[in-house]
Amino acid sequence: MSDHARTLPGAGDGGRTPSDDTSRPANGPARHGGWPLWEVFVRPRRGLAHHHVGSLHAPDAELALRNARDLYTRRQEGVSIWVVPAAAITASSPDEKDAFFDPAADKVYRHPTFYEVPEGAPHL
């Protein structure tokens, strides 16, 4: 298991970072000349949530923020940036097709489309 990714116990072979663009195979490298990997999240505009935009290497949080500004917001793509050490993120599973999400599969009644609405019932 690489030291920059933590996976939920028992969720397969583990050792991979959480987000799609940043997951590394087991035993993958974690550091860049002693500089850890950071995941970058940007809020594009007021009213929108922060979204993952990519990753970078930096020695500490402050430089990670500055590097993220220079790398991901050169064209005013954001009004706020979060940087998170990749090692601090816990991923649900090593791949995207295991049983972790199965419990949701048989609960179609959670969607409004499950219910039949009689004709003429207003505001439903």
């Binding site: 663009d21 940043t22 997951s23 993958g28 490298p29 550091r31 990997l37």
Partner: peptide, 11 residues
Amino acid sequence: AAAETLGVSRD
């Protein structure tokens, strides 16, 4: 960064 997702390091 894209290459690193394939298991190779920047270094």
